[in-house]
Amino acid sequence: DKHFVVALYDYTAMNDRDLQMLKGEKLQVLKGTGDWWLARSLVTGREGYVPSNFVARVE
């Protein structure tokens, strides 16, 4: 069951495990537990961690 989110804010990666994203960017959540979610950008195809409070679910 795939679940998708949209970035509510720009996020600048703090290290090489984070995923940089721009407000409005759509992401697929690969692992969504805790404060940091592993996601893949549908724009760039890159994977990394994003802060869960920076994204909102897309139905």
Rank of each mutant, 00 (worst) to 15 (best):
W36F: 13
R17Q: 14
G45M: 07
S41E: 01
V55K: 00
M21F: 12
E47M: 06
W37E: 03
W37T: 13
M14N: 15
M14G: 14
S41T: 00
G45C: 05
G32N: 12
E59R: 13
F54R: 12
R46M: 13
G48M: 04
N15H: 13
V5F: 10
E59I: 07
D1W: 06
F54P: 05
V55E: 02
G32P: 11
M21A: 01
F54V: 09
N53P: 08
V58P: 09
S41K: 04
G32Q: 15
R46K: 15
Q28S: 05
G24F: 00
K26S: 11
A39R: 01
F4A: 05
T33E: 15
V58E: 10
P51D: 03
R40D: 04
V29Y: 05
Y9F: 14
G24T: 07
A13N: 01
R57F: 07
R40P: 00
L22Q: 10
V43T: 15
G34S: 07
L42Q: 10
P51C: 05
D10H: 07
F54E: 00
V55R: 01
Y49N: 08
E25P: 01
L27Y: 07
P51V: 04
M21C: 07
D1Y: 10
D35Y: 12
Q20M: 10
W36C: 10
D16K: 13
Y9E: 14
L30Q: 06
S41W: 01
N53V: 06
L8S: 06
L8V: 07
L30R: 02
V55Q: 00
G32R: 14
K31W: 05
L27P: 01
K26L: 08
E25Y: 02
S41P: 01
H3Y: 12
E47G: 01
V6E: 14
M14T: 15
K26C: 09
T44G: 03
V6F: 10
G48L: 04
R57M: 07
D10A: 04
G34V: 02
G32E: 15
L27S: 01
G24A: 03
L38W: 13
K2W: 08
E47F: 04
T12D: 13
L22E: 06
D1E: 15
K26A: 07
G32H: 11
A13H: 03
R17V: 07
P51Y: 05
W37M: 12
V43R: 15
M21D: 00
T12Y: 10
L8N: 03
L22K: 13
D35P: 13
N53H: 13
P51A: 02
D1M: 09
D1N: 11
L38S: 02
V29F: 01
L30N: 02
K2A: 07
Y9N: 15
M21L: 12
A56M: 10
E25L: 03
L30I: 10
G34Y: 03
N53K: 14
G45W: 02
L38M: 08
S52H: 11
V43P: 03
W37S: 08
D18M: 10
A56C: 10
Q20D: 10
T44V: 00
W37D: 00
T12K: 15
A7V: 01
V29W: 03
R46A: 11
V55D: 04
Y9D: 14
R40S: 00
L42N: 07
T33N: 14
D35G: 07
V29G: 04
Y49S: 03
A39T: 08
L19K: 03
T44Y: 08
F54Y: 14
V58W: 12
Y9G: 10
G34M: 00
D35E: 12
K31F: 05
Q28M: 08
E59Q: 14
R57I: 06
Y11E: 03
D16R: 09
V29Q: 01
F4T: 13
M21S: 00
Q20A: 14
A39K: 03
V6S: 06
Q28G: 02
W36Q: 13
L22W: 07
N15E: 09
F54T: 09
R17P: 04
V43E: 15
G32S: 15
V29H: 02
R17F: 12
A56Q: 13
K31M: 11
L22Y: 11
A7R: 01
L8Q: 10
L22M: 15
G45Q: 08
D16L: 07
G32C: 15
F4L: 13
T12P: 12
A13S: 13
R57P: 15
V58Y: 10
P51L: 02
Q20K: 13
N15Q: 10
D16T: 11
W37C: 11
G34I: 03
D18N: 12
G24P: 00
F54K: 12
S52N: 09
L22A: 14
L42E: 09
K23G: 02
E59L: 04
N53F: 03
V29S: 00
W36D: 10
F4K: 04
F4M: 12
E47H: 10
L19S: 01
R40C: 01
A56S: 15
E59D: 14
M14H: 13
G32M: 15
V6G: 04
K23H: 03
W37R: 04
G34K: 06
T33I: 10
F54M: 14
G45K: 10
R46I: 05
V5W: 05
T12N: 15
E25G: 03
V55C: 10
L42T: 13
V58D: 10
V43Y: 07
M14L: 13
A39P: 00
Y11D: 00
D16F: 08
G24Y: 02
N15K: 11
N53D: 13
S52E: 07
D18L: 03
V29N: 03
S41M: 02
L19D: 03
A7F: 01
L30F: 00
N15A: 11
N53G: 10
K2R: 09
A56V: 08
D35I: 04
A39G: 03
V58F: 09
D18G: 13
L22C: 15
D18H: 14
W37K: 09
H3C: 12
L30A: 02
W37N: 03
V58A: 11
S52W: 07
V6Y: 12
R46C: 11
W36S: 11
L22P: 00
K2Y: 08
D16A: 14
M21R: 01
S41N: 11
R57A: 14
Y11P: 03
A56L: 07
R57C: 11
V29A: 03
Q20V: 08
D16C: 10
R40V: 04
W36M: 15
F4C: 08
G45N: 08
T44F: 00
V5S: 09
R40M: 03
V43C: 10
A7L: 03
G24R: 02
M14A: 14
Q28D: 05
T44E: 03
M14C: 13
L42A: 07
D16V: 09
V55F: 04
E59S: 12
V50D: 09
F4Y: 10
Q20R: 11
V55P: 00
G34W: 00
K2C: 08
E25F: 04
K23T: 05
W36R: 15
E25V: 04
L19Y: 00
L30H: 03
E59M: 06
D1F: 08
L8H: 03
D35A: 09
K26P: 08
R57T: 14
V6R: 11
L38T: 07
L8R: 11
A7I: 04
G24H: 01
R46Y: 06
L19A: 02
L22T: 12
D18S: 11
E59A: 09
W36E: 11
R46E: 12
M14Q: 15
Y11T: 06
G48N: 00
Q28F: 07
Y49K: 04
V6Q: 13
K2D: 08
W36L: 13
V43G: 06
V6M: 10
V29P: 02
L42S: 06
K23Y: 04
D10S: 09
D16S: 12
L8K: 13
F4H: 07
Y49Q: 04
M21N: 00
V58K: 06
E59F: 07
H3P: 09
A13F: 04
T44K: 04
Q20I: 05
F54N: 06
K26D: 06
A56I: 08
G45P: 04
T44D: 09
A7T: 03
W36A: 09
R57N: 14
G45R: 07
K2E: 07
D1H: 08
E25H: 05
